[in-house]
């Protein structure tokens, strides 16, 4: 199950690459488990699934997503970066400095234990906390965008804290071409 989720995320990340003009990588139904959606795509967004690259290539998107880590997690109803999150983000900043061709879209998400509109605002806070950290670590604001999905796109679906904890996240999605 864990592996499936990871695979789905990678797929999504790949799809996100092509949608650099449109921060909503879920548009047209390209969400986790959206393989069918991809088959149904007409290619208008120029999807390139090769862009993930080899995870052993330190300049690849796959390396960033898996080895550096594209996701940080938050405590309940919080947008403060935990020490663990700061460690991951510092590594993200380092990678982004060395791979300056990439822009990023930071997605903020919330768990389902909150009302819809508050969670949109909370997701924005989380995305912004990540953006500010990266900015403070040398990534120009012009390379970054944020978007909040509130509780609209959970990745873990059980009604337990272990799933809520996975959903309280900010995901750094790479996009081609720096200033997207």
């Amino acid at each position: 199950m864990k592996r499936q989720i990871t695979t789905a995320l990678l797929l999504v990340a790949a799809l996100g690459l092509a949608a650099c003009n449109n921060p909503d990588r879920y548009k047209n139904g390209m969400g986790p488990g959206g393989a069918n959606g991809m088959n149904g795509m007409n290619g208008a967004n120029g999807i390139s699934s090769a862009a993930l690259g080899d995870v052993n290539n330190p300049h690849s998107v796959a390396f960033f997503n898996q080895r550096v880590g594209d996701t940080v997690h938050f405590n309940e109803d919080q947008s403060t970066l935990t020490p663990e999150a700061q460690q991951i983000l510092a590594a993200q900043a380092q990678w982004l400095k060395e791979n300056s061709d990439f822009g990023i879209i930071v997605e903020g998400h919330a768990d389902e234990r909150g009302t819809r509109e508050y969670n949109l605002a909370l997701g924005a806070r989380r995305a912004s906390a990540v953006q500010e950290f990266l900015n403070a670590h040398g990534i120009p604001a012009a390379r970054m965008k944020t978007i909040s999905y509130g509780k609209e796109r959970p990745i873990a679906l059980c009604a337990e804290e272990r799933c809520y904890a996975q959903n309280r996240r900010a995901v750094t999605v790479l996009s081609n071409g720096g200033n997207s």
Binding site: N22, P23, D24, K27, N28
Partner: peptide
């Protein structure tokens, strides 16, 4: 259509218009 996320519609007092939030442009 079903190709984007829409949230929380709100009727106008006269019932002729609806406010809503959409990701249609890519951003809410």
């Amino acid at each position: 259509p079903a190709n984007t996320i829409v949230l929380a519609p709100r009727f106008s007092p006269d019932g002729r218009r609806v406010l809503y939030t959409s990701y249609a442009s890519g951003e809410p």
